[in-house]
Amino acid sequence: MIPQSFQYEAPATLAKALSLLQQYGDAKILSGGHSLIPMLKLRLATPEHIIDISGIKGLSYIKEQGGYLKIGALTKESDLEESRTIRTRYPILMDAAKMIADPSVRNLATIGGNLAHGDAANDHPAVMLALRAEIIATGPNGKRNIPVDEFFLGFFTTALQPDEILTEIHIPVKKAKTGGAYLKLERKVGDYATAGVAVQLTKDDQGHIAQIGIGLTNVSAAPMRASNAEAVLKGKSPTDELIAKAALAAARECDPNADLRGTVEYKRAMVKTLTERAVRLALKRAK
């Protein structure tokens, strides 16, 4: 398990990183390395150039500003776990961070890398779908905001252009009566999800669900939103019956593959169960 040789650059600034990216064309971006390095070791990826952006200052932060929770792309999973803001106001992100791989991996793995990899098995994509986040990409012509619904295009494919770097994530700042949860079924701790469900919802004064986002992990080629499930609950009072109906909708709209983690039938059933449970937990947290 030895990677093929490559050229390595560790630019100190984003500008330099972007110019190297343009210069090399085929370069791979390395931040925490926990998606890329395994692929390099298996020689599934054999880039000629690697641009290590982990040394770029100012890309690691968690702050509420201008109506958004802004998270720098180089923010590590362990930073999320240890953040008071995340713990007290965005439990859905805390749920996810704690379930990603293991503590040592989380000490290096970054949220930007988790999203930019475009892997439906990663946990943050579903969470960002539930949170209706925006992904900020920086390229030679500056920044652009990509709504998360336009970010995941297909199997390991994102809207990032070859000359762009994912630099920031914008999440609408937590409103009153908002709660979220991420539940993940795994074969053993640290595994990729057999199925995962992220739910973020806001209640109105009548106790109806004013807004809801539901994202699904590892039950489709690209990370997916459970739109039908959302539609069942949006604007409604969340009765047991409606929650069950929404869960069933999510189970039907997902598109899992049979693999070592389970049959299609099992995964759909798990999406149903996890959706019900995540909605209930989110409602409980939406105080």
Binding site: M1, G33, H34, I37, K41, D52, A101, S104, N107, L108
Partner: peptide, 28 residues
């Protein structure tokens, strides 16, 4: 070799990391 077992764990700037999934150049 796949960052699952942790036998290679060391502290990098005080935090535990799996040194089989880190390049030496990253530790510069």
């Amino acid at each position: 070799d796949t960052s699952n077992c942790g036998a290679c764990t060391v502290l990098l700037n005080g935090r535990s990391v799996k040194s089989c999934t880190v390049f030496a150049v990253q530790a510069n």
